[in-house]
Amino acid sequence: MKPRILLVEDEALVAMMMEDVLEDLGWEVAASFADVRPTLEWLEKCDTLDGAVLDINLGAEMVFPVAEALRKRGTPFTFLTGYTAPPKAVEFETPVLTKPVDVDELERVLERFRQAA
């Protein structure tokens, strides 16, 4: 069974590409969202999740409530951003990938998620 990953990304183009990339790297994209609220609602009902990729800036809001929820349930995740990482992101002590994404780097980060499971 493929490991399951959550994607939170507000740009449709980037989201579609990330889905392809994640599938190529052997993951099943369990869900992808552009906003915090539907993500949190989905997380509450989600049983298994092996990792997540979170875009930091979601237009009008930041992704941190999702990061908090993932930290609570012990699901590893990486941030993705077009800006330099804000101080709040650094507090989570997780990887931070920059856009446009380097697929090799993403692969290394996801490999660590697999091993941590």
């Binding site: 740009e11 183009l13 980037v14 579609m16 590409m17 392809d20 990339v21 077009g82 800006y83 920059t98 856009k99 446009p100 994404v101």
Partner: peptide
């Protein structure tokens, strides 16, 4: 800087797809 990075990410997406 942000917009240029976004544009590059968009182009990356269009190209790969």
């Amino acid at each position: 800087d942000h917009r240029v990075k976004n544009m590059l990410a968009s182009i990356q997406s269009i190209a790969t797809q």
